[in-house]
């Protein structure tokens, strides 16, 4: 060690305190005996020191306060979101019940009005051909009000389910780092 000058890596490791005690002691011995390496170490230390004491950018005085306010606002929003969750879950559950209820209503009304019979006539007896009378009879047989209610309940259920998922799911920013 005493015969060779330190390499750049050794100097870096020495300056940055990256060496274990034994390795550092070895280098210390060499540096004590070698004016060249001593000078190089001193030069590197001067650069490192100059970097460490370089004046920093001036931070806006209210920046931390603004960040705290933004964080608090987000925390409040998240808390409100979590507080809403049971209500949204309940509403989703009832809207699902309504979907089932109106769905059954549609099936029952369709059977009572003979919609399925009209449809089977259309599909099985093609020799009868298409007539506007049979078409309008089919339209009249369709339980429109039940269908509309079922459709509305499905839309409500989807919207509420979306809200529920958003309430439960972590914020999208969580996936970034």
């Amino acid at each position: 060690m005493n015969q060779k000058h330190l390499t750049a890596i050794e100097i870096d490791q020495y300056i940055e305190n990256e060496l274990d005690a034994h390795a550092r002691a070895e280098l210390d011995t060499h540096i004590a005996d070698c004016a060249v390496c001593h000078a190089r170490i001193a030069r590197e230390q001067k650069l490192a020191f100059a970097l460490q004491i370089l004046p920093r950018e001036r931070t806006p005085t209210d920046l931390a306060a603004r960040i705290r306010a933004a964080v608090d606002l987000r925390l409040t929003q998240d808390r409100q979101r979590r507080d809403r969750m049971p209500l949204v879950a309940l509403a989703t559950f009832f809207s699902l019940l309504l979907v089932v209820w109106f769905g059954l209503e549609v099936i029952i009304a369709s059977q009572e009005n003979g919609v399925l019979d009209f449809l089977s006539i259309f599909t099985s007896q093609s020799d009868l051909g298409f007539s506007s009378d049979s078409f309008f009879a089919l339209i009249e047989a369709i339980p429109i009000s039940e269908l509309a209610l079922a459709l509305l309940s499905i839309i409500t259920c989807i919207i509420l389910a979306q809200q529920l998922v958003e309430t439960i799911r972590p914020h999208p920013a969580q996936n970034k780092s």
Binding site: E57, L63, R66, A173
Partner: peptide, 25 residues
Amino acid sequence: ARRLLRDSMEAENVAQETFLRLMLS
């Protein structure tokens, strides 16, 4: 951020977003 981006407004945004992301994660 100020030194890397050389833009104080963007540096402020980075600082704020950093803590929001830290909070969320």
